[in-house]
């Protein structure tokens, strides 16, 4: 199996789907000859031309809106936002329009559009280029939200996202782009709404996704040396949430820690823990915990940013406190 980067995996997914589906076209800032700020669309303009790989002005609201209109009449746009933070510039088109038009029309129109963006911190990009918004979008009925952590999942989930026929918020992470992993050759996809157990363990369930999933795996290594076997679940899809996989895991471990880079306050950790108590109140042998960003804007300086965002050591400490 080829060992490729997350960026290459995304690029392959776009190329392969564009080859077989003429309805797919791309829009975004600097995605053409520049190949996108993180090179996800590298060289695609050479293969598919300027009509299908469209550089846009810096006007997120309009080009997301154009994607919606094109999607309603039979196209399959994939729209790239430079930073997820800019989704707020296009919030009306995403939340009031893309998510609702099918419902408000009684199912007579559909919006097969993927909005891709990278999010998250760790690079000192400051408070307007480092946020994590998956919980915001997961709160809006009508949006699918995915956040792959590995190259293989990124490719497989981007393919599924382009095929689903519904609006998808596809969340990448700026510090995952250069990570490598084995990616199957040929056509394959990862189903939306299905989590994956990335490491088996009997003592505690750690639920995470996107970049903090890698931290959780690192933490699990350290914990293993200390005699704690952590099971690590990669959600992969944020909405719809794969609760059966979580519930099955905690049935065996009795302990639960949810880790995400998004702010803790009203975050996915709260949602998952609430659902666990609603759906399987007796499965935990001790109170669950969650780790997310502290409730401040994301700072620039490394010492500050590292103290705000959950790190591998924080996960180790949180787990050890549960034993």
């Amino acid at each position: 199996m080829p060992n490729i980067t997350y960026v290459q995996a995304l690029n392959e997914a776009l190329r392969e789907e564009m080859k077989v589906d003429p309805r797919i076209f791309l829009m975004g800032e600097d995605i053409g000859h520049h190949g996108g700020i993180f090179r996800v669309t590298k060289d695609l303009i050479d293969e598919f031309g300027v009509d299908r790989v469209r550089d846009t002005p810096i006007s997120e609201s309009s080009f997301v809106g154009l994607g919606i209109g094109a999607a309603m009449v039979g196209m399959r746009p994939v729209v790239e936002l430079l930073f997820m933070d800019f989704a707020l510039v296009a919030a009306d088109q995403i939340v009031n329009q893309a998510a609702k038009l099918r419902y408000m029309s009684g199912g007579t129109v559909s919006i097969p559009m993927v909005v891709r963006a990278q999010q998250g911190g760790g690079r000192g990009n400051g408070a307007q280029h480092s946020q994590s918004f998956e919980t915001w979008f997961a709160q809006v009925p009508g949006l699918i939200v995915v956040a792959p952590s590995t190259p293989a999942d990124a490719k497989g989930l981007l393919k599924s996202s382009m095929r689903t026929g519904n609006p998808v918020i596809f969340i990448e992470h700026k510090l995952l782009y250069n990570t490598k992993g084995d990616v199957p050759e040929g056509d394959y996809s990862i189903p939306i709404g299905k989590a994956e157990i990335k490491r088996d363990g009997r003592d505690i369930t750690i639920v995470s996704y996107s970049r903090t999933l890698l931290f959780a795996l690192e933490a699990a290594e350290t914990l293993a040396q200390k005699g704690i076997e952590a099971e690590v679940i990669d959600l992969r899809t944020i909405e719809p949430l794969d609760m059966p996989t979580i519930l099955e895991s905690i049935k065996g471990t009795g302990r639960l820690l949810v880790v995400h880079e998004a702010h803790n306050n009203c975050g996915l950790g709260a949602e998952i823990i609430a659902r666990v108590y609603e759906q399987a109140p007796d499965s935990l042998i001790m109170p669950p915990r969650r780790l997310g960003a502290k409730h401040v804007p994301i700072p620039m300086a490394e010492s500050l940013e590292d103290s705000v965002l959950p790190q591998t050591a924080d996960i180790v400490n949180a787990v050890e406190a549960m034993f």
Partner: peptide
């Protein structure tokens, strides 16, 4: 009729997108 909209300019980009699709198709 792709939709009436409760956001006063919300449907303008949708018409533009449909126009773009017409060209692409």
């Amino acid at each position: 009729l792709l939709g009436a909209n409760a956001i006063v300019a919300g449907g303008v980009p949708h018409a533009a997108g449909a126009a773009l699709a017409s060209r692409l198709q």
